[in-house]
């Protein structure tokens, strides 16, 4: 029997990254501020997690403006979507495996 844990993506180990991915899966794009409110964490903490995901081409950054204020939004990449779906499947397998 193959070990289902192998399929779990290390990138999605943290609850915060899991939250970021969940929000990006169901929304076309999500702003930094909305993510911050959703996850209830500090700017620095959120930024570092976003950076990791971005470096792994899981998410894309989009910088725009609302009036004069900068508005940074994030969206999921094709790679990211695939990786997250695989992670979800692996989680499901984990739950079923011991039954």
């Amino acid at each position: 029997m193959i070990n289902p844990i192998e399929n779990l993506n290390k990138l999605f180990d943290s609850r915060i990254r899991l939250g970021i991915m969940s929000a990006l899966m169901v929304n076309a794009e999500v702003s930094f501020n909305d993510l911050k409110e959703l996850l209830d964490i500090t700017d620095g903490n959120l930024a570092s997690h976003l950076k990791t995901l971005e470096e792994n081409s899981i998410i894309k950054v989009q910088k725009g403006f609302i009036g004069r204020k900068t508005n940074t939004t994030y969206l999921i990449t094709k790679t990211g979507e695939k990786a997250f779906k695989a992670h979800l499947e692996a989680l499901e397998k984990m739950i079923r495996s011991t039954k």
Binding site: R15, G19, M21, S22, A23, V26, L38, L39, L88, L91
Partner: peptide, 13 residues
């Protein structure tokens, strides 16, 4: 984890 994902999907959308 799955429950957390579901909650975050709902809350954000």
């Amino acid at each position: 984890d799955l429950q957390h994902i579901k909650k975050m999907m709902e809350r954000s959308s």
